[in-house]
């Protein structure tokens, strides 16, 4: 079955990807004050990455919405959020904590946009970890590359349907 036909049968993955991308644009323009360029769909990022994920539970599906970046790009976003210049040192733990807060805001905005359509029931707490969500049966994974200022990040939507 073609990807286009699958999308026609189940438009939710496309809608979630659009909502998450728009959410990052909103977060970047307000909390980060950085410009956003959406590059488009890509494969899973390679190399060591930091990932911040937030769980969203809807009546019919379970999602993890994530933002993934290498060390330099995640630090760029965190410095923008905290308004800390390159010349100043970040405290230990600042990067994962603030990166998680960025994911929390992206997840919250996306959830609000999607709840109008599908009635979202819950938003979890952010989880920050190294690496990606592993691909396995039953999970649909989508990635979108985005430039946020000088940072290159990948948005992740991992979706599994509830039975």
């Amino acid at each position: 079955m073609s990807a286009a036909l699958l999308r026609a049968i189940d438009p939710a993955p496309v809608a979630w990807a659009a909502a998450v991308g728009s959410a990052l644009e909103q977060v970047a323009s307000t909390a980060l004050e950085l410009p956003v360029t959406r590059i488009g769909a890509v494969g899973a990022p390679e190399g060591p990455v930091l990932g911040a994920y937030i769980a969203v539970l809807t009546p019919g599906e379970s999602l993890q919405i994530g933002i993934v970046a290498d060390a330099a790009s995640s630090e760029t976003l965190v410095r923008a959020l905290l308004r800390i210049a390159e010349s100043e040192e970040l405290a230990p733990g600042d990067v994962p904590d603030a990166f998680g807060e960025i994911a929390n805001m992206v997840g919250g905005v996306a959830k609000a946009a999607m709840s109008v359509q599908i009635g979202v029931v819950g938003l979890g707490l952010p989880l920050v970890t190294t690496g990606l969500i592993a691909a396995r049966e039953g999970i649909e994974l989508g990635y979108e590359a985005v430039e946020v200022g000088a940072a290159r990040v990948t948005l992740v939507v991992a979706r599994s349907r509830l039975r």
């Binding site: 905290l82 904590d97 807060e101």
Partner: peptide, 13 residues
């Protein structure tokens, strides 16, 4: 707030 980052941002403001 459970996020130190958000406490820092709000506190500074």
């Amino acid at each position: 707030d459970d996020s130190k980052a958000m406490r820092m941002i709000l506190g500074r403001l």
